[in-house]
Amino acid sequence: MTEYKLVVVGAGGVGKSALTIQLIQNHFVDEYDPTIEDSYRKQVVIDGETCLLDILDTAGQEEYSAMRDQYMRTGEGFLCVFAINNTKSFEDIHHYREQIKRVKDSEDVPMVLVGNKCDLPSRTVDTKQAQDLARSYGIPFIETSAKTRQGVDDAFYTLVREIRKHKEKMSKDGKKKKKKSKTKCVIM
């Protein structure tokens, strides 16, 4: 069974824990209790493949930012979460993405942009803004509501699919490099 290491990042209060708990335990946590770091595991079937999701729910508070490099190193894919009623959390996505790329030393890291709290009427981040940002990053965008469960499975499952595509691409690139290195030079 394939294991996928997913990391949920975003500013404090955007609903990272609520999304994760909704996926794992099928219930909505409405009281806000700032996370330092929590880890969850769940076995699911995605596109006919049974897999184990190892999900790291991270601290959004700035005082825990020193811990970010460590979990970013171990993560295979990242859910970059903002709240649709919090423009600052949307603007912060850029910083999370840049930090992930720096730590992973790669421009090509599996990510999904997630606009959470889409059940709320007080939207300050337009869907088109988020779609445009995701398009500019070359990553999928999904709106979710941890409260109603809308888009929750889709967000995590899409990230797994992005990781699969990335692994497939990397193995193809690896095979191309191996083929090239088999060419021999004969000096007579």
Results as ranks from 00 to 15, higher is better:
Pro121Asn: 11
Lys101Met: 10
Phe78Val: 07
Thr74Phe: 08
Arg73Pro: 11
Leu113Asn: 01
Arg97Gln: 07
Ser65Ile: 06
Tyr71Met: 14
Glu91Arg: 04
Met111Trp: 05
Ile93Arg: 00
Phe90Val: 10
Ile84Phe: 13
Val103Ile: 13
Glu63Leu: 02
Ser106Tyr: 10
Met72Gly: 06
Ser65Ala: 07
His94Trp: 12
Ala83Trp: 01
Asp119Val: 03
Val109Ser: 03
Cys80Gln: 02
Arg102Lys: 09
Thr74Ser: 12
Thr124Tyr: 09
Val125Leu: 09
Lys104Cys: 15
Pro110His: 02
Ile100Ser: 02
Phe78Ile: 08
Lys101Pro: 02
Phe78Glu: 00
Lys101Val: 05
Arg73Glu: 13
Met111Ser: 01
Val81Gln: 04
Thr74Tyr: 08
Gly77Lys: 01
Ala66Arg: 05
Lys88Met: 11
Arg73Ala: 13
Cys118Trp: 07
Val109Met: 05
Gly75Thr: 12
Lys117Met: 15
Met111Thr: 02
Gly75Arg: 03
Cys118Ile: 10
Tyr71Arg: 04
Ser65Lys: 05
Glu76Thr: 13
Tyr71Thr: 13
Arg102His: 09
Asp69Leu: 02
Gln70Ile: 05
Gly115Ala: 11
Ala83Ser: 13
Glu98Phe: 01
Pro121Ser: 12
Cys118Gln: 07
Lys104Arg: 13
Val103Ser: 06
Glu63Asn: 13
Tyr64Met: 12
Phe82Thr: 09
Ala83Glu: 15
Cys118Ser: 10
His94Asn: 15
Glu107Tyr: 10
Phe78Trp: 03
Arg123Asn: 14
Thr74Gly: 13
Ala83Gly: 14
Lys117Asn: 14
Met72Thr: 08
Val81Arg: 00
Ala83Pro: 14
Val81Ser: 04
Arg123Tyr: 09
Arg68Ser: 15
Val114Ile: 12
Ser122Trp: 07
Glu76Gln: 09
Val114Lys: 00
Cys118Asp: 09
Glu76Ala: 11
Glu76Trp: 14
Glu76Leu: 10
His95Met: 03
Ile100Arg: 01
Phe82Met: 12
Arg123Trp: 07
Met67Glu: 14
Val103Leu: 14
Glu63Met: 03
Cys118Arg: 05
Gly115Val: 10
Arg123Cys: 14
Glu98Thr: 04
Thr74Met: 13
Lys104Phe: 15
Phe82Leu: 07
Met111Val: 06
Asp108Glu: 08
Lys117Pro: 00
Ile100Lys: 01
Glu98Gly: 03
Val103Gln: 07
Asp105Cys: 12
Arg102Leu: 06
Ile100Tyr: 02
Tyr64Arg: 09
Ala66Asp: 12
Asp108Thr: 06
Ser65Thr: 07
Arg68Gly: 14
Tyr64Trp: 07
Asp119Thr: 05
Tyr71His: 14
Ile84Ser: 15
Gln70Cys: 08
Ile100Cys: 04
Asn116Gly: 08
Phe78Thr: 02
Phe82His: 08
Asp108Leu: 04
Pro110Gly: 01
Glu107His: 07
Glu63Pro: 12
Val112Ile: 10
Lys88Gly: 09
Pro110Phe: 02
Glu107Trp: 08
Ala66Tyr: 08
Asn116Leu: 15
Phe78Leu: 05
Pro121Tyr: 10
Cys118Asn: 11
Ala83Lys: 05
Arg123Glu: 14
Thr87Gly: 09
Met111Phe: 11
Ala83Val: 02
Glu107Lys: 06
Lys101Phe: 08
Asp69Ser: 06
Lys104Gln: 11
Ala66Ser: 10
Asp126Asn: 09
Met67Cys: 12
Lys88Trp: 12
Phe82Ile: 07
Leu113Pro: 01
Ala66Val: 08
Arg68His: 13
Ser89Leu: 03
Tyr96Arg: 02
Met111Gln: 01
Asp119Glu: 11
Lys101Ala: 08
Tyr64Ile: 08
Glu107Thr: 08
Asp126Trp: 05
Thr124Asp: 13
Val81Phe: 13
Val109Asn: 01
Val103Lys: 03
Val103Trp: 15
Met72Trp: 08
Arg123Lys: 11
Asn86Ala: 05
Phe78Ser: 01
Val109Gly: 02
Val125Ser: 10
Leu120Met: 10
Asp119Leu: 03
Thr74Trp: 08
Ala83Met: 03
Asp105Asn: 09
Val109Arg: 02
Leu113Lys: 01
Thr74Ile: 07
Gln70Gly: 07
Ser106Cys: 12
Ile100Ala: 02
Pro110Ala: 03
Val109Trp: 04
Gly77Asp: 00
Ser65Val: 07
Tyr71Glu: 14
Asp119Lys: 03
Tyr64Asn: 15
Glu91Ala: 05
Leu79Pro: 01
Val112Asp: 00
Asp126Cys: 08
Lys104His: 09
Asp108Phe: 06
Lys117Arg: 12
Ile100Pro: 01
Asn86Asp: 15
Ser65Arg: 05
His94Leu: 14
Ala83Asn: 15
Pro110Trp: 00
Lys101His: 09
Cys80Asn: 02
Thr87Val: 06
Thr87Ala: 14
Ile84Cys: 14
Leu79Tyr: 02
Val114Cys: 04
Phe78Met: 04
Phe82Glu: 01
Leu113Cys: 07
Val114Asp: 00
Lys88Cys: 09
Gly77Leu: 09
Ser106Thr: 11
Gly77Arg: 00
Glu107Gln: 06
Gly75Ser: 11
Glu76Asp: 15
Phe90Ile: 12
Arg97Trp: 15
Glu107Asn: 07
Glu63Asp: 10
Ile84His: 15
His95Arg: 14
Lys101Leu: 09
Ser65Gly: 11
Pro121Ala: 10
Phe82Pro: 00
Asp119Tyr: 03
Asp108Ala: 05
Arg68Tyr: 08
Cys80Leu: 14
Asp108Trp: 04
Arg68Glu: 15
Arg68Pro: 15
Lys101Ser: 09
Arg68Leu: 08
Asp119Arg: 03
Asp119Met: 04
Glu107Ile: 13
Gly77His: 01
Ser122Ile: 07
Val112Leu: 05
His94Ala: 14
Leu79Glu: 00
Asn86Phe: 01
Phe78Asp: 00
Gly77Asn: 00
Glu91Tyr: 04
Pro110Glu: 01
Phe78His: 02
Gly75Ile: 13
Asp126Val: 06
Val81Trp: 00
Cys80Ala: 03
